[in-house]
Design a protein around this nucleic acid. Structure first.
Length: 478
RNA sequence: GGUCCCAUCGUCUAAUGGUUAGGACAUCACCCUUUCACGGUGGCAAUAUGGGUUCGAGUCCCGUUGGGAUCACCA
């Protein structure tokens, strides 16, 4: 049997990191076995539908290179791939399930949701007994034909213990009396997840169902449906949750948890993908940096971890820094360019700026802070020229800058090597330490204690005119 | 509350029943150096707890504690 997995998100907002990780594992299971990865949109809850959410799903998967073999946009042999377009299919199977004794029609009014009422907690734990279970199928169908609103509820007629196997969690036992006779087909004619996922996964010939472990306890219900239809259940791969901290799952309200926000903050999609792959999985080697293609080769779902993993932005930052450093100078420059907006109109050497920034930033957004002084020289205090290690102070700095100014004015080849050699010579000729020239120059050019790059690197970025200007400004202060 | 699941450094994790419990991030120190960063070297740091089984337990079993999930006409 061919390996076929599906990513089945509901279009209710943006792509959350946990969702993306599930999608990744589904993709990897398919590709590691030469199988197909299917995209299916689960939009059976019209109330929660968010305009544009489907588009975000498409864009995100494409952006990280997880291309699907079948889906709403490209079709396939098992379509349609949007659940709201499969309404007739679910209705057909729901009625069939009733005929097979796996479900019954129910005419009860909507149960009010009072689960937040703590005083009624004990009462809330009493299982719902559906009086409609006693209505004969013939009578129920008569009422339906008369236009009476109805739902289809699952029958849990079995007793004893259900056992099923999960790739991650092993054998799981759950008693049948723990199971609810839940709604399968809603009064609007659309199915609930509990029904749609079974019908679709079977019809689409999904071999491995990958989903969050919150579905473990309802899996026996799905197996019952498979059983009643005479279908073979898929291989189950329940994955642990991604947590924001020890107590909270990643929430959609937290912007950091969304893929698009991370990318907007200057995280590279490849780094994000790499990081989440390792959240709850590792290949058993010490390799940590993986491309999607490498993951396809070594992924094994048996190595998935059972316990939840906390999303640690600090490690993602480090990993993002690795990816940034691995970029070619050109690639980095292209990515950095949009972040140089504040430098527009200046005649700066942006290539030089990029090369100095590349090993220094972990997230592209860091660029703004690191380049602020280039757009405008901060109003610094001359106390900055004081530095014990460099053996400088404002007096030394004044002397150094007075020496440096005419030398700099005479430099024609404005390169880092040449500037560095020139200033070094200047120091030697005046019996000064390198730092006694370079440190004051760097402060004069930046007005900052720490800068990306040294004195001559900054000079190259700023260009000759701006460099001379800033040195003169410093001398005025001193 | 019932049921199910989980438990190794602060975090992500490794360890056929036999290792000084390994690696990575973070952190600290030092080296490199034109400040900072990158890079390099080293340090700190964990088997939740109580019982068993065993010559030997992070690993197997039971209890405890802690955490999570689930009990919707949401997925």
């Amino acid at each position: 049997m061919k390996t076929r997995t599906r990513f089945a998100p509901s279009p209710t907002g943006y792509m959350h990191i946990g969702n993306l990780r599930t999608a990744l594992y589904e993709y990897l299971i398919a590709k590691a076995n030469g199988g197909d990865f299917i995209l299916r949109i689960e939009d059976t809850d019209q109330k929660r539908y968010v305009e544009g959410a489907t588009d975000i799903i498409f864009k995100t998967l494409k952006r990280v290179g997880m291309n699907w073999d079948e889906g709403p946009d490209i079709g396939g042999n098992f379509g349609p791939y949007v659940q709201s377009e499969r309404k007739a299919i679910y209705a057909e199977y729901a009625h069939k399930l009733v005929d097979l004794g796996g479900a019954h029609y129910c005419f009860c009014a909507h149960k009010e949701d009072d689960s937040t009422d703590d005083e009624n907690e004990a009462e809330a734990h009493i299982k719902f007994k559906d009086p409609c279970k006693n209505i004969s199928v013939e009578e129920a169908r008569k009422r339906i034909a008369n236009g009476e609103p109805f739902v289809v509820r699952q029958n849990i007629n079995k007793t004893g213990t259900s056992v099923f196997h999960d790739v991650v969690y092993g054998d799981i036992e759950i008693d049948y009396d723990e199971l609810d006779e839940g709604v399968l087909l809603k009064s609007d004619g659309l199915p609930t997840y509990n029904f749609a996922n079974v019908v679709d996964d079977h019809l689409m010939q999904i071999s491995h169902v990958v989903r969050g472990n919150e579905y473990i306890s309802s899996t026996p219900k799905y197996n019952l449906i498979y059983e009643t239809f005479g279908w073979t259940p898929p291989t189950y791969v329940h994955v642990a949750q991604v947590m924001k901290d020890a107590h909270h799952k990643l929430s959609k309200r937290n912007g950091d948890a969304s893929f698009q926000d991370l990318v907007a903050k200057g995280y590279l999609p490849e780094a994000v993908l790499n990081y989440i792959a390792l959240l709850g999985w590792n290949p058993g080697t010490e390799q940590e940096i993986f491309s999607l293609q490498e993951l396809e080769k070594c992924f094994e779902c048996e190595k998935l971890n059972k316990s939840p993993a906390i999303f640690d932005i600090t490690k993602l930052k480090w990993m993002n820094g690795c990816y940034i450093r691995n970029l070619s100078a050109d690639e980095f420059h292209k990515l950095a360019l949009p972040f140089y907006e504040a430098l527009q109109g200046k005649n700066y050497n942006l290539e030089a700026l990029s090369s100095v920034l590349q090993p220094r930033i972990e997230v592209l957004n860091d660029i703004a802070d690191q380049t602020e002084f280039l757009a405008q020289l901060p109003d610094y205090d001359i106390a900055l020229f004081e530095n014990k290690k460099m053996k400088t102070n404002p007096e030394v700095a004044k002397q150094a800058l007075e020496l440096a100014l005419p030398v700099l004015q005479n430099v024609t080849e404005w390169t880092n090597e040449n500037l560095f050699a020139t200033l070094k010579d200047l120091a030697v000729n005046n019996e000064l330490k390198n730092g006694q020239i370079l440190y004051p120059v760097r402060i004069a050019l930046s007005g900052l204690e720490t800068t990306p790059g040294g004195a001559t690197e900054l000079a190259v970025i700023l260009g000759k005119d701006e460099t001379i200007k800033r040195v003169k400004q410093a001398l005025n202060k001193l």
